[in-house]
């Protein structure tokens, strides 16, 4: 007889599902981005391939895949090839512990929040190695920017997370959402009983999320008017494609995390019909905002970003931490 662990099958199904979800998201977020950018700029965006240009991502993927995978002269072949995977895989791994709904979660880890952040920090390593390995001056400048940017932004982000963990008292993502159920006034973003600065904390988290995923206005890593394509300058075809997908996967992780931590996950704003659809609505709304921001603002500079982090975000985050702990102690 076959003794196959049911849990293992479930896990495999979930991993496959997650990979499919991520790939589909990465492809269609490109479509969404182009469409949204188009309409913001009063154009249509992709429209030729399929209805509303819906088949455009497939055409793009096909184009990228048929391109020759060149390994340029002088690059470190191992680092050069491993880097895109190092960006992609941790993003997929993060999904393992993200609860999409009450039941839809691959592994409900007790240290889920910690695991997500552990995986998220590998992403930077991938970019650094890829840039370093491709031996391009633009790429190396970009790598230096990515690393210091991430170091600067992990601090306010983690301070906000510490505040949140103090409020909820758990690192289990599923539990964090469960504590927020019952309508939008229970969500962490509006938990004024813990701290009156919770909306500000959410904004800081959101800004840090943008910076961590290298999205505009913090896209200094691939600032195309300065560094051509930054860390991806030397990457051809699908090497670039995987980086690209990894970036969008990271955005999905970031917005999912924001949904879970602050917006009540799968909880309905009015306490009715909770479920995965609410999670997806909130997540895509946040992604819409991310794209909307990208097509509105110019890019910051490197020192502008550090100034923002050290002079505004970190003090405010710490102030929020102290305020929260005081309020938790008092009430």
């Amino acid at each position: 007889m076959f003794f196959i662990d049911a849990e293992l099958i479930r896990l495999l199904a979930f991993v496959l599902g997650v990979i499919g979800f991520v790939a589909l998201n990465a492809a269609y977020l490109v479509w969404l981005e182009r469409k949204e950018a188009g309409h913001i700029q009063r154009r249509i965006g992709p429209k030729e391939v399929g209805p509303f240009g819906l088949l455009q991502p497939l055409a793009d993927a096909l184009k990228l895949m048929t391109k020759n995978l060149i390994t340029p002269d002088g690059v470190d072949p191992i680092l050069f090839k491993i880097a895109p995977i190092l960006v992609m895989v941790p993003a997929i791994m993060s999904f393992v512990t993200l609860p999409f709904s009450d039941t839809l979660v691959a592994r409900n880890l007790d240290v889920g929040l910690l695991a997500v952040f552990a995986f998220a920090s590998i992403n930077v390593l991938g970019l650094l190695l890829g840039a370093w390995g491709s031996r391009n001056k633009y790429a190396v400048i970009s790598a230096a920017r990515v690393v210091s940017q991430n170091v600067a932004y992990e601090i306010p982000m983690l301070v906000i997370i510490v505040t949140l963990v103090m409020i909820t008292g758990t690192l289990n993502l599923h539990e964090i959402v469960t504590l927020q159920t019952g309508g939008f006034w229970h969500w962490n973003v509006l938990k004024f009983s813990a701290s009156p600065l919770m909306p500000v904390a959410f904004i800081i988290f959101f800004i840090c999320m943008l910076a961590e995923t290298n999205r505009a206005p913090f896209d200094m890593a691939e600032a195309e008017s300065e560094l051509v394509a930054g860390a991806f300058t030397e990457y051809p075809g699908m090497g670039f494609g995987v980086f690209f997908m990894g970036e969008y996967a990271n955005i999905v992780v970031g917005t999912s995390l924001a949904t879970i931590l602050f917006l009540g996950g799968w909880d309905c704003p009015l306490g009715l019909f909770p479920g995965v659809h609410w999670f997806l609505i909130k997540m895509y709304a946040l992604i819409f905002v991310v794209i909307w921001i990208r097509w509105t603002y110019p890019r910051t500079t490197f020192y502008g970003l550090l100034n923002l982090s050290w002079k505004i975000l970190i003090p405010v985050a710490f102030f929020n931490l102290i305020l929260t702990s005081a309020m938790l102690k008092v009430f």
């Binding site: 700029q41 505009a216 206005p217 600032a223 110019p298 890019r299």
Partner: peptide, 16 residues
Amino acid sequence: FILDLGGFSPLLYAFD
């Protein structure tokens, strides 16, 4: 110029 600074949409508005 705004495109150099990383802002995309003003270019299209200006072109309009």
